[in-house]
Deep mutational scan, measured.
Amino acid sequence: KSEISQVFEIALKRNLPVNFEVARESGPPHMKNFVTKVSVGEFVGEGEGKSKKISKKNAAIAVLEEL
């Protein structure tokens, strides 16, 4: 299972809201860097990556460590 689906499963079991959002985009158009924030109830994680998908996955990994 992907880290993102694990976050949603845990949140569902604990009845917590999940929110993913792109917090920052930086860099030139051909080499963008994304920072995504995820919140699961009061737990927050942040991930960085060269694409929105990678930064979302890294944010999920960060919040899984707290859950």
Rank of each mutant, 00 (worst) to 15 (best):
K50V: 11
K50E: 14
R24C: 13
K56P: 00
Q6T: 09
I54C: 08
S55D: 00
V22G: 09
L12Q: 14
N19G: 07
E48H: 12
E9G: 05
F43C: 08
E46K: 13
K52T: 04
V38Q: 02
G47F: 00
P29T: 11
I61Q: 10
E65S: 14
P29A: 14
P28Y: 06
A62N: 15
A62C: 08
I54A: 12
K50T: 13
A59Q: 01
H30G: 13
V18I: 10
P28N: 10
R24G: 09
V7I: 08
K32N: 09
F20H: 02
F43D: 03
V7H: 01
A62Q: 12
S2C: 05
T36R: 01
K50F: 06
K50L: 10
F43K: 07
V35H: 14
F20N: 01
A59C: 02
E21Y: 10
L67G: 05
L12P: 03
A62V: 06
T36E: 04
V63P: 03
V40C: 07
N33V: 11
H30A: 10
E9I: 04
L16H: 02
S55E: 02
E66T: 13
N19L: 12
A60E: 03
H30R: 12
V22K: 15
L64Y: 02
F20I: 11
E25C: 11
A23D: 11
E9T: 09
V44I: 13
V38T: 05
F20P: 02
I54Q: 12
S39L: 08
V35W: 09
F34I: 06
A23M: 15
I61T: 07
L12W: 12
V7G: 03
K56R: 13
K53S: 10
E25W: 09
A11P: 00
G27L: 06
K53N: 08
K13A: 13
K1M: 09
V22T: 14
V22M: 12
A23H: 15
H30V: 06
F8H: 14
L16V: 10
E3G: 04
N33C: 10
K50W: 08
N33I: 11
K13M: 09
N33Y: 08
V63R: 02
E48Y: 14
S55K: 00
N33T: 15
E9N: 06
S5F: 04
E65I: 03
P28E: 10
L67I: 11
V38W: 00
N58V: 03
G49I: 01
